[in-house]
Design a binder for these strands. Structure first.
Length: 594
RNA sequence: GGUCCAGUAGCUCAGUUGGAUAGAGCAGCAGCCUUCUAAGCUGCGGGUCAUGGGUUCGAGCCCCGUCUGGAUCACCA
């Protein structure tokens, strides 16, 4: 890695020339900006106090030293305090030769260290997945890929919220008004069917409240006493008591939902190594609470409810067990965290959860610390921003929720129309066409969402998301297809990729590409470190754009010199391979032809 | 009200240990296909980096204040 070599040499140079040892962190190596000559630039301002010379003089001293003592540095120029270094062509070409045919370039294959548990998706079983879940799923899946790529073992887990009052609402509504409707009888996807009854419950419930308010009952009281909600609560009690009929209904309806979720996950291309169900974990955590109580970390109020006092940390008191002994969300999360720490001996526990739950995770970590869990610091909340629509937040009440299945279907149709209009794949059979439309539509959707920094609130503009030009997934897929096309043509003409004869001189565009490819391993590493697929997305876009410029102005197969053809072909192949790897990390497939 | 997060071109976004004249895409305008896939490429216009101070040789980035927007502060999850 040339950057490391330069940093070490600069430290050495400062020591030899100015007689002082400096921290290598003072040395910043960055890419030389396009308008100047050189490949890499070192900023010398930090050394001025030591050199006691002008920026220009200092830069000249160091530049001369590097040129003298490093084969990789063939020349330099100085502008103000910036030392622009020219790196030898040999260095770039050696790198190229070593890596161009390596299809795992940028990936760390040997696993090291403790595994990393990534929880994502975490749906409720009372309604279908929507746009917000899509961001969650894509982020979780891609982050797990990045962690694997960086040499750690990622374990993908999903904690399904399959119990609680909200589930009972759908169950009750189905019981009352469902007429035994099933996915089979209605043709509705299971999760959508159950979601329909959840909405239905809400409508009837609201009507009841309105009725009560009309008859003179206060609104607050009406909300608590409406027959439907009382009945739902009663159902939850029966569920917790293990009532056979209730459990049977619950299992049947959840089964419908799971079948629906499975289909959505499969279509989206995400998966899990392990599923957890809240119905099995909601009782966990009580033992931790007991221990905390015994250890004096938690306290009990007169009504027997158990709390954690966080006022010393600037937060409030947090309830952990209700007066009747039942547990809350936090109690369960304490338990599942312990379980995962034990089960996987995880080095990190990552939770992909929206930033609306920041407070929850602050509290979770704090309580675990108070309970004396040293691994509490391993908990990492990947707190991603909300997805908004042009008209603002999604609101189920106003029917502006974008359904995941509908969205993927619309994208598919758009991809189909656009592709057919362009008319490049008339020779494809139906299966090939279907695969391509799927690839393009998902590529567009996934890239659109993943290119934005996870932490930021993002805007989902339906019109923009189906645009396949510019900074989009299909643009990158297209670039890959172009490269593959070059290879097909080359094969037809009997041309081979070979680097037996590496040119002594390459074009600036070619060098730009090689330099960009050289960055890839660092990009993957940093993206994994920052849990940010967006960094890979932005990189691969730059790479595709750079390649298209090269493709436009430099002949590959039309070149006369056969050695040059071979070189350019292998360069294109390298780019294609890195595009494919990058996209794979994002969970996006790339086509051979489009 | 307390806490936290955000504010960069008309719109969507990059800009990650502070470095040179702040970059892309979309939208607009003007060009490039009998020649390797035009889902592409080239050019033009477009900025008080919300705002006022501060630290620094140097600030979109760090610190403080203000304004605007959002999230959260449940015996919901």
């Amino acid at each position: 890695m040339i950057e490391k070599i330069l940093i070490n040499k600069i430290v050495e140079a400062v020591s030899l020339i100015y007689g002082q040892t400096i921290d290598s962190k003072l040395v910043s190596v960055q890419k030389t900006r396009k308008e100047f000559t050189g490949d890499l630039t070192i900023v010398v301002f930090p050394f001025l106090k030591i050199s006691k010379k002008s920026p220009e003089q200092t830069a000249n001293d160091l530049g001369a030293f590097l040129t003298e003592n490093l084969d990789e540095v063939t020349g330099f120029n100085v502008i103000k305090g910036f030392l622009n270094l020219e790196i030898s062509l040999k260095y770039w070409l050696d790198f190229f030769n070593q890596s161009f045919s390596d299809t795992t370039f940028g990936l760390v294959s040997e696993k090291a260290g403790a595994p990393v548990v990534v929880e994502y998706s975490s749906p409720n079983t009372n309604k279908p997945l929507h746009l917000g879940h899509i961001r969650n799923n894509l982020l979780g899946f891609s982050v797990a890929n990045l962690i694997n790529a960086a040499g750690k073992n990622a374990i993908k887990v999903n904690l399904v919220n399959d119990r609680g009052i909200h589930i009972c609402k759908s169950m009750l509504a189905w019981q009352k008004w469902g007429n035994l409707e099933s996915p089979e009888s209605s043709g509705l996807k299971g999760d959508h069917l159950v979601g329909k009854y959840y909405v239905m419950f809400d409508q009837h419930y609201k009507a009841e409240i309105a009725q009560l308010v009309l008859s003179g009952v206060e609104k607050e009281r009406a909300e608590k006493e409406a027959p439907l909600i009382v009945e739902a609560q009663e159902m939850l009690r029966r569920w917790e008591a293990g009532d056979a009929g209730t459990r049977q209904l619950w299992e049947m309806m959840n089964g419908w939902v799971y079948a629906g979720f499975d289909e959505t996950y499969r279509r989206m291309g995400v998966d899990f190594d392990k599923m957890y169900y809240e119905s099995q974990t909601y009782l966990l955590g009580r033992q931790l609470v007991e221990e905390g109580l015994a250890g004096g970390v938690l306290f009990k109020k007169e009504d027997n409810s158990v709390w954690c006092d966080l006022t010393g940390d600037g937060l409030d008191e947090k309830l952990l067990l209700r007066a009747d002994g039942t547990s809350v969300y936090m109690t369960q999360d304490l338990g599942t965290a312990q379980m995962r720490a034990d089960e996987f001996h995880a080095g990190k526990l990552i939770y992909v959860v929206g930033n609306e739950q920041n407070y929850h995770f602050d509290v979770l970590k704090l309580i675990l610390k108070k309970l004396g869990k040293p691994w509490a610091d391993n908990i990492l909340h990947l707190s991603y921003g909300m997805v908004e629509l042009p008209q603002g937040r999604m609101k189920s009440r106003e029917g502006t929720v974008v359904d995941a299945d509908d969205l993927m279907e619309e994208m598919y149709n758009t991809a189909k129309t656009t592709t057919e209009t362009l008319g490049k794949i008339d020779a494809f059979d139906d299966v090939e066409k279907h695969n391509l439309f799927t690839m393009i539509s998902l590529g567009a959707l996934k890239y659109y969402i993943l290119k934005v920094d996870p932490k930021k609130t993002m805007l989902f503009n339906p019109e923009e998301s189906i645009d396949f030009n510019g900074n989009t997934g299909p643009f990158i897929q297209y670039t890959h297809a172009r490269i593959r096309s070059l290879f097909r043509k080359a094969a037809e003409r009997g041309l081979a990729v070979s680097t037996d004869e590496i040119p002594q001189l390459i074009l600036p565009k070619e060098k730009d590409l090689i330099k960009l490819l050289h960055d890839f391993p660092v990009v993957v590493h940093e993206a994994a470190e920052n849990l940010s697929p967006a960094q890979v997305a932005n990189y691969v876009y730059d790479l595709a754009k750079e390649f298209n410029q090269f493709y436009q102005e430099v002949p590959v197969l039309k070149e006369e010199d056969t050695a040059m053809i071979a070189f350019r072909l292998s360069l294109a192949g390298f780019v294609g391979s890195v595009i494919k790897t990058s996209m794979k990390l994002l969970g996006i497939e790339v086509p051979e032809k489009m």
